[in-house]
Simulated scan of single mutants.
Amino acid sequence: MSKATRATQALEKAGIAFSLHRYDYDPAADRIGMQAAEALGEAPSRVLKTLMALVDGKPVCVILPSDREVAMKRLAAAAGGKSAQMMKPADAERMTGYKVGGISPFGQMRSVPTFLEEAALGEEQVYLNGGQRGLQIRLDPRRIAEVLNAKAAALVA
């Protein structure tokens, strides 16, 4: 497994401090983020998942704790839209350039509006996918908002 991914390169280019953490990715896990949290020995609230969704048919990136689900009405409202739905996995892979289970909000093929669950900003450090299955990036959650120009909002059900 390579240490350099588009995600790590994007963070390095932005001058953001982070550390890399590997774990044994389980492709059969029901909830990938929860499996990552367990493997890392971290609380699910500190291991964030990256989801790709559509708001009024337009792609957005959503970052939230691995043990929570996105409230589609809240996401639509945060994005100034009327309705939201999850993006199909194949479409998410095409749009981001990453495989499901390895989608990072950093270094995606195309920049899209990004929304961060505001509760994550209460953590000192969080984990996010590093652009490969089994690779997590640990960083200050405020840097996520800074680098991605992410809007913090109450997004969870």
Rank of each mutant, 00 (worst) to 15 (best):
R6L: 02
T8K: 01
T8A: 01
Q9P: 00
A10S: 12
K13D: 04
A14E: 04
I16C: 03
F18H: 01
F18W: 05
S19Q: 11
D24M: 05
D24G: 04
Y25S: 00
D26M: 04
I32N: 00
M34H: 13
A37G: 09
A37F: 09
L40D: 09
E42V: 14
A43T: 13
A43M: 14
P44W: 14
P44A: 10
S45K: 15
R46C: 09
V47S: 05
L51N: 01
L51Q: 00
A53W: 09
A53P: 03
L54H: 05
V55R: 01
D56T: 04
P59R: 07
C61L: 05
C61P: 02
L64M: 06
D67L: 07
R68E: 11
R74K: 15
A78T: 07
K82P: 02
Q85R: 15
P89N: 09
D91Q: 13
E93A: 07
R94T: 12
T96D: 00
K99P: 00
V100Y: 04
I103C: 02
F106V: 03
F106K: 01
F106A: 01
G107A: 10
G107T: 14
R110H: 15
S111F: 15
T114H: 12
F115M: 01
F115Q: 00
A119E: 06
A120T: 04
G122Y: 14
Y127I: 02
N129F: 09
G130S: 10
Q132F: 15
R133L: 12
L135Y: 14
Q136I: 07
R138K: 15
R138M: 09
L139V: 13
D140V: 14
D140L: 06
D140W: 13
D140A: 12
R142T: 11
E146T: 08
A152D: 07
A153L: 05
A154D: 12
A154W: 12
L155G: 01
A157H: 13
